[in-house]
């Protein structure tokens, strides 16, 4: 659905739900997920509805994911890093993660 305007910056490898995904330096986690065609990054805590990054500027909180074991991180505010582990957050966050 999304197409990169340019492929100029160097590639960065991240792991999304156990699978390698190729991103670009300067991508946010949310942008990387969208570019990789990942349809949703979390489900809501009460009804379990799927959600994907929406505002991409830190306001809507629809982009919450677990990053390197820490839950409820805003993917649109965090740049990718080589080897970063991103997990889809299903429903309520587990306290302590």
């Amino acid at each position: 659905m999304f197409k990169r305007l340019a492929e100029s910056s160097p590639a960065v490898g991240i792991i999304v739900d156990g699978k390698p995904v190729s991103a670009r330096t300067g991508d946010t986690v949310a942008a990387a997920l969208l570019a990789a065609g990942i349809g949703h990054c979390r489900t809501t805590p009460v009804t379990g509805a799927p959600r994907a990054p929406f505002c991409l500027m830190g306001v809507c909180f629809d982009c919450l994911v677990t990053i390197d074991g820490v839950g409820s991180r805003q993917g649109c505010l965090i740049p990718v890093r080589e080897g970063m582990k991103v997990e889809t957050q299903l429903g309520r966050r587990e306290a302590g993660r």
Partner: peptide, 12 residues
């Protein structure tokens, strides 16, 4: 009185 409310968490 004041109350602080967190995000929704799995039951613990």
């Amino acid at each position: 009185g004041q109350i602080v409310v967190t995000e929704r968490l799995r039951p613990f």
